[in-house]
Each structure stands twice: as structure tokens, then as C-alpha cells.
Amino acid sequence: MNLDYLVLGSGGHFNGGDVIATLVIFLILMFLLKKFAWGPLMGMMQQREELVASEIEAAENARKESAKVLEEQKSLLKEARTEAQTIVESAKKQGEIQRDEIITAARAEANRLKESAVREIETEKEKAIAAVRAEVVSLSVLAASKVLEKEISEEDNSALIKETIAKAGEAK
């Protein structure tokens, strides 16, 4: 069995042409691929990398921005709440004050009315008493003059009148 063909270089000569062909074909292939396939593909991958990086950055920025806004909103809400509480409290206080004022005013008014009524009553009473007195005096005089039909001394007259008046006063 002839196994010579398994021996490297058994051809007996060196294929210089194959070496050149291999090199030339491989290098041309590499050049063409770089120009038409790998170049554009690498560019696209590069572009994608940049896109991803910029997107990540944008997302990070958006996250920061939203956190800031959220913080702002929180503080605003807190402020608003405090303000509302203040407003409610002051309104309550105001209401109380007003109520007190109204009550005080009403009380004063009532007092005033009562006093004025009392005064009026007093005045009317005085007036009535005076009128009654005058009437009583004239009636007494009339009655006395009619009953007695006599001259009475000035002193007796006067004393009598006074006594009558006093009696009238008590009888009343």
C-alpha cells in the first residue's frame, strides 16, 4: 500500500503560486469586507452604543428632574397644608372674637334698653304720683271745703292737707 501521499511535501515541489494566491485572495477579501461589510456594521454598532449611552444619560437626567419636581411638589403641598391650617385657625379665632363682640353688644343693648325702660317707668311713676298728688290735693281741698264748709285756719288747713296726703300716700 502506497502511503506516500500522506507525507507532507510529498509532491516534491513547492507551490509558490498557491502561496501568492492564498495571500492575495485573503487580503482582497479582507479589504472588500472591511469596505462593504465590517465597516458599515461597526459604524452601526458604534452608533447604537452612542445611542444607548445618550439614552441612559437622558433617562438619568429625567429621573433626577422628576425627583426634583417631586421634592418641590412635596414642599409646596406641605406649605399649602400649613397655610390652610393657619387660615382655618385664624378664621376660628376671628369667629370667636366676633361672637364675643356680638354677645357683648347684645348684652349692652339689652342693658341699655332695660335701663331706659326702668328710667321711663320711673319718670312715668313720678309723673303719675305728681298728678295723683295734685289731684288728691285738689280733691281734698274740694272735699274738705265741701264737708267742713267752714273757715279753717291757715295752720290747720295746711296740717290737715299734709295729713291727708300722707294718708293718701299710705293708702295707695
Binding site: N15, A21, I25
Partner: peptide, 17 residues
Amino acid sequence: FSLTFNLSTVLMLVITA
């Protein structure tokens, strides 16, 4: 000098490429 080409190898190299 002379260059020897194995046409089969060259053909297959071209097909591969």
C-alpha cells in the same frame, strides 16, 4: 523562476472568498 499553481486550490480559495 517558475510559479506552480494548484488550480483546484485557487478555485476553492476564490469560491470561499
